[in-house]
Design a protein around this nucleic acid. Structure first.
Lengths: 353, 353
DNA sequence: CAAATCCCAGTAAACCTTTACCGCAAATGT
DNA sequence: ACATTTGCGGTAAAGGTTTACTGGGATTTG
């Protein structure tokens, strides 16, 4: 059931069949029709391996993520796959689990399978591996940071925009004491988030207090631990911003179990806006970066490298605040408000005297 | 940078290189050593396409899931991938989003890429597609139900065991009025869960009340809607069991928003035990089916078909209850308990008189 | 009417590897 | 010492497709 069978049935040569399949315009419509009929008749599929072998194009894109069970990634993968398939590519997925050894094996698999381009959506990649890909002229896309080399693009996430929105939101509600639970600071993305937070505080005129910044590990357990440390302090912050939603969920749990109300006593903001954020009780205010934008940008970056058009080196990915139930006025606001209005009423009474 | 380069550098023929790489024992250790050195020197990778073309083995396994963003699946994918890679296979992932058209395109892609075997972890597959795979002698694995044909295996999930444990757990706590929020009944898995629930009720001596069974759709929104319908009834059940965790989370939300306590007023049990179940407040009692068992069984089923050993047609996947915070005594139990102990104290007083 | 041009289909090489088969050399047996 | 076996490396075919090149027939031009 190969191309010869089709050629025989359609009474043409295999070259004509090949040309027909590949929509090469020099083929006579009459013959093309015969060929398509034969193809349908035999239910023929071209052999991708043979195709890839001779054309040198595997139509395979690699996608390397940190861990597929981290709910941020499946949405990313879905988007990536969808766009890739739209463009006639297949996706090879690799997950590193933050293990450089596994990263190595992922890269190896990508090279062995002749992936035409690879998107690296996890921690940085080591130099020797990078060379391996660069030697083979395989285009790469990174998130946040990338070596400035030909064939490599970077998706720069604008952490600052979303995080500033979050801080402004809290500031507008009246929060002045905001803690930050950071991710593992060896990860670039975690560092960027922390830096954006500090900058946003300054912009809102809130002093940065280092003791209110705690390093976690982007998991729920990390959030539990971080919240425990926050609770040890004598004066509790009125709001906690987290480097990702898993941390925020952990914090939420710990606070609940300690008898604190969210947002009554403490407001919480997460980051990523994973599906789960919406499902928590209270639902989690979070900062979203669009997974589908990220996926779309990654594929189109790779495509520009592959299809010869002039590649952009940088793509910007937006972030923005999604307000839900976990943020509210700081505790005591209501009491103060009552006092304030009472006072005003008093002074009003005085003035009318 | 092909096999010839290695052969030249090692001063052997390409056949020897090939044999060395494939660990064929008839090659002289001395030459093998030279070959390995040359391979390392040149950083040579065999071309997978060419290999697949000539050997007829793509070392590719297909995995078709419903939707990758449904948190049940990423864990499954992770397990499947891990086991596949351990056995020298790569994984091609396809997601159907419950759309038969997309299923068709998934199958097509699997065939085009010459997947050696395919695991179908979603709704049933239509006859023509099945034939397409069967014609090409591609082994298949299904969940729950499969046509009895050579080359096809089925992973039979023992829904009954876990669900019975759940019902027994509720019964032991004193629940007699238990509602069930089913999944979409056109899905076999949803039907099986409902059937298992009914059977378990009977085994525990609790009458089955059809009006307490509601069809949902395995999403959080479905859970919200189902809970709304349950709240319309005059007498509320004391416990609600759900066909999956997403439904349970929806129900939990609706009840919370309606001012009901979980488990104080109503107990909830989910199914699947997705990661999220543990993160809810209260954390969700759920019935787990091991994703890693499922993945492992799927790969090993395909492997037995591929590597010629005698294939098993059926594999059984276990389920079991994981008790967390969302289940407790039925409402009023405490009041009744107090009355009971008071009464007993009374009669004890009488008898000692 | 002959020559030139053009269109398009067919032939064959190439892509890179595996593997059946051949043959050489050394070892063993008589 | 010769015949037979054994071990092992090399040669070449095969796998299914794309594509450069070739060439035949039709159409146009002089």
């Amino acid at each position: 059931m190969d191309i010869h069978a089709v050629a025989k049935l359609a009474h043409v040569s295999i070259a004509t069949v090949s040309r027909t399949i590949n929509h090469i315009p020099t083929v006579n419509p009459k013959m093309a029709k015969r060929v398509w009929e034969a193809i349908r008749e035999l239910d023929y599929f071209p052999n991708t391996q043979a195709r890839a072998l001779v054309s040198g194009r595997s139509r395979l894109l690699g996608l390397i993520v940190s861990e597929i069970t981290n709910p941020f990634f499946p949405e990313l993968i879905q988007g990536f796959e969808e766009v890739a398939v739209e463009n006639g590519y297949e996706v090879l997925i690799g997950s590193t689990n933050y293990d450089p050894e596994r990263m190595k094996s992922c890269i190896r698999r990508m090279v062995e399978r002749n992936a035409e381009g690879v998107a690296v959506m996890t921690f940085g990649i080591e130099q020797p591996l990078l060379d391996q890909l660069a030697d083979r002229k395989i285009p790469l896309v990174f998130v946040d940071v990338a070596p400035n080399r030909p064939g490599m693009s970077v998706l720069r996430v604008d952490y600052h925009h979303g995080i500033r929105q979050g801080v402004q939101h809290l500031a507008a509600l009246g929060h002045r004491s905001i803690a930050f639970v950071a991710g593992p600071l060896r990860l670039h993305s975690a560092q960027s988030r922390l830096a954006a937070f500090k900058k946003a505080l300054q912009e809102c005129g809130i002093p940065v207090e280092e003791k209110r910044i705690i390093e976690g590990d982007h998991t729920m357990e990390g959030g539990l631990a971080a919240a425990a440390r926050i609770l040890e302090h004598k004066n509790l912050p009125t709001a906690i911003m987290c480097s990702n939603d898993m941390l925020a969920i952990g914090v939420l749990h710990k606070l609940s179990r300690s008898g604190l109300q969210v947002p009554g006593d403490v407001s919480i903001i997460g980051f990523d806006d994973i599906h789960m954020a919406e499902m928590m009780i209270p639902s989690l205010t979070s900062i979203q970066m669009s997974r589908s934008d990220l996926a779309r940008a990654a594929v189109s970056a790779l495509r520009t490298h592959l299809e010869g058009s002039t590649p952009k080196r940088e793509y910007t990915i937006d972030t923005h605040l999604v307000v839900r139930e976990s943020t509210g006025f700081p505790r005591g606001t209501m009491t103060r408000l009552r006092k304030f209005t009472a006072k005003r009423a008093e002074s009003a009474a005085e003035s009318t005297q």
